[in-house]
């Protein structure tokens, strides 16, 4: 069964990829007319997004809109039914496996749950990409790993196992691992989900600081509107498989589209209904059947 759908006007404004003087920034990632279906559900249908180099771009949308799927498409873990995804001008899905892995070495990704390797301690988790891809001497690996852990404030946890870390700490270690090979792009998948306010603030500051200090491109997928909007240079709002609004956070807040308004203000009911479509409530209660 497909997801409930509601008709929305499409808006594919590239406003957040333009600089103040109207010159478009060079996009590092371009998603062009992408369609993707899973089972009977159309996740994306004509999706267009441009991710500018060196900025923090937020991709937001209600739960179930396919934000994580978009990241998996972007990194070549899934293949779209139609359209192209270009990273530094190269189509991700026409790359050979070697080219794809070469591209991924320029990327770091933070998964929703951190995805730390549970049989390795914190130090070895951060060292993992270095050991796999380089022949650096042990002294240098140790230096890099401790530097990265220090940057996320968790140098003291270097001998702890992932099971001993809190959710926020696990994500910070995963951030250190994502930074270990100094990638050009860092992708965060729901970095704030389930975190307490202190951990949330720490992660937000780290995302911003890393982006500015290392001059990398940051892509954040989240539905924590207020928090992510506070650090994002530009945002895309996805609904029903398309971009329905894009721009700087302030532009999104002023957008008249009812779905954008509902999302930005967090209203429970609106164009995106609170109730999943079903039979009449009273009829179902009185009917007594299992239908």
């Amino acid at each position: 069964m497909s997801e409930p759908r509601h008709e929305v006007p499409e808006r594919d404004s590239p406003s957040c990829t333009e600089s103040k003087v109207g010159e478009p920034d060079k996009a590092i990632v371009e998603i062009q007319d992408v369609a993707f279906t899973r089972g009977a559900t159309r996740i994306f249908d004509g999706l267009n997004i441009r991710i500018p180099r060196g900025k923090i771009t937020a991709v937001m949308g209600p739960s179930g809109t396919g934000k994580t799927t978009l990241l998996r498409l972007m990194t070549g873990q899934l293949t779209p039914d139609r359209g192209q995804i270009l990273v530094e001008g190269k189509d991700v899905h026409s790359m050979s496996r070697t080219e794809l892995y070469a591209m991924r070495r320029k990327m770091g990704m933070l998964f929703q749950n951190g995805a730390l390797l549970t049989d390795l301690d914190v130090f070895e988790n951060v060292a993992f990409p270095l050991r796999e891809h380089t022949n650096l001497p042990e002294r240098l690996i140790r230096h890099i790993v401790l530097t990265k852990l220090h940057a996320v404030g968790l140098r003291g946890t270097w001998r702890m196992m992932p099971s001993a870390l809190s959710g926020g700490m696990a994500r910070r270690v995963a951030m250190a691992r994502a930074m270990a090979t100094d990638p050009e792009i860092i992708i965060y998948d729901e970095p704030l989900g389930g975190l307490d306010p202190i951990s949330m603030g720490v992660i937000l500051r780290l995302i911003k600081r890393l982006n500015d200090a290392l001059n990398i491109t940051t892509i954040v997928v989240s539905h924590d509107v207020q928090e992510i909007a506070s650090i994002a240079d530009c945002s895309y709002l996805i609904s029903n498989g398309k971009v329905i609004a894009s721009g700087k956070p302030d532009e999104l807040r002023e957008n008249a589209n009812p779905i954008v308004q509902q999302f930005m203000t967090g209203m429970a009911d609106g164009p995106v209904p609170f109730h999943y479509p079903g039979p009449d409530y009273s009829e179902q209660l009185l009917g007594g059947s299992s239908e």
Binding site: N113, L117, R177
Partner: peptide, 13 residues
């Protein structure tokens, strides 16, 4: 727990 996906993303088969 996405550990295999994380490896894929780190270009590790």
């Amino acid at each position: 727990t996405d550990q295999l996906a994380a490896m894929e993303m780190m270009a590790v088969d």
